[in-house]
Structure formats: C-alpha cells, structure tokens
Simulated assay, not measured.
Amino acid sequence: MRFMVLIKADANSEAGVMPSAQLLAEMGQFNEELVKAGVMQAGEGLHPSSRGARVRFSGTGREVIDGPFTETKELITGFWIWKCASLQEAIAWLKRCPNPMLGESEVEIRQVFEAEDFGAEFTPELRAQEDRLRIQVEEQQRQQDA
C-alpha cells in the first residue's frame, strides 16, 4: 500500500520561514531511516501558498485564484509518499518523525488509490494506458537523473 503523508502548513511556513539546521539534520536522518527500510518513495517541501495558485472548475469554466490562501490550517507545506504494509505501519513511522514545525503541528496520512481499488470501471484499456504512462514517467525521471 502507498500512503501520502501530508505536512500541514503553519503561520511560519506560510511566511517563508525556513527550518533550522538542526531540524533539517533531524529530518535528513529520519528520511535516511525511511529509505533504508524501503518505505520512502518520494518527499518534498512546498513553497508558501503566496507563490502558488488554484484553478476553480465550474462546468467548462476555469477561474485562476492566485495565492496566498487564507486558511493556513488547510494548507500543505510538504509531503512524503511511503510504501507500507498498513495504515498502522505508516502511523508507527510517523510517530518516530521529528516535529516538522517550531510549535504544534499536524501531519495527515492518506492511502493512495491503486488500480485494483477502482474495480470494473477501470477497464483493461484504462489499465494499459496507466501502465504506459507510469513507464513513460519513470523513463523521463531516469533521463533527468542521468
């Protein structure tokens, strides 16, 4: 199972306050543990919402809304993609994580949908397309890393 681990923003992250060298070192060590255990598949921090945008969809209409966004508690400042056997395993890993913020913080764990979760609606043709796209993305990443 794959899980997206979402680190919620706070006033400091939205103001662009960067983590301390100590926190970066602690997070680096935690990420090394995740990688060695085969758990971590990806992980990144995000710039403040003032540097982002949203696109609101209404039928065929599209409206662009520039950041910053006011509801800080609803914003994300970083994420991981983890591969774990269960939600309980992901929770156990997260409990070992250094606090990602200066004060109180909240981190959300959500399971990522896999092809088999979609049932019959995910036809063989759609599965083939998904497989083809995943291979293309992996190949593009390999070329960028070379």
Rank of each mutant, 00 (worst) to 15 (best):
M18I: 04
E63A: 07
A11V: 14
S86L: 10
M27L: 13
M40N: 08
Q29H: 11
L75E: 02
A128E: 14
Q140D: 13
A21Y: 01
Q144G: 13
N99I: 15
A128L: 12
H47C: 04
P48G: 10
I7S: 02
D10S: 08
S20F: 06
R62L: 11
I65D: 02
A146H: 11
G38A: 10
A128D: 09
V35E: 06
G103Y: 11
C84N: 02
W82D: 01
I7D: 01
M18C: 05
I109K: 03
R132G: 13
A90L: 02
I91D: 06
D10R: 05
P19D: 06
S13T: 15
S105Q: 05
L46F: 11
A120I: 06
L94G: 04
T123Q: 09
C97N: 13
M18N: 10
E130A: 15
N31F: 02
A146T: 10
P100W: 00
P124M: 12
N12W: 09
R134P: 00
F57Y: 10
K73G: 01
A90N: 02
Q136Y: 05
A53S: 15
L87A: 12
Q88I: 04
E106W: 10
R51Y: 09
Q41R: 15
E130H: 15
F79L: 07
E138S: 12
T77L: 00
E74H: 07
P100V: 01
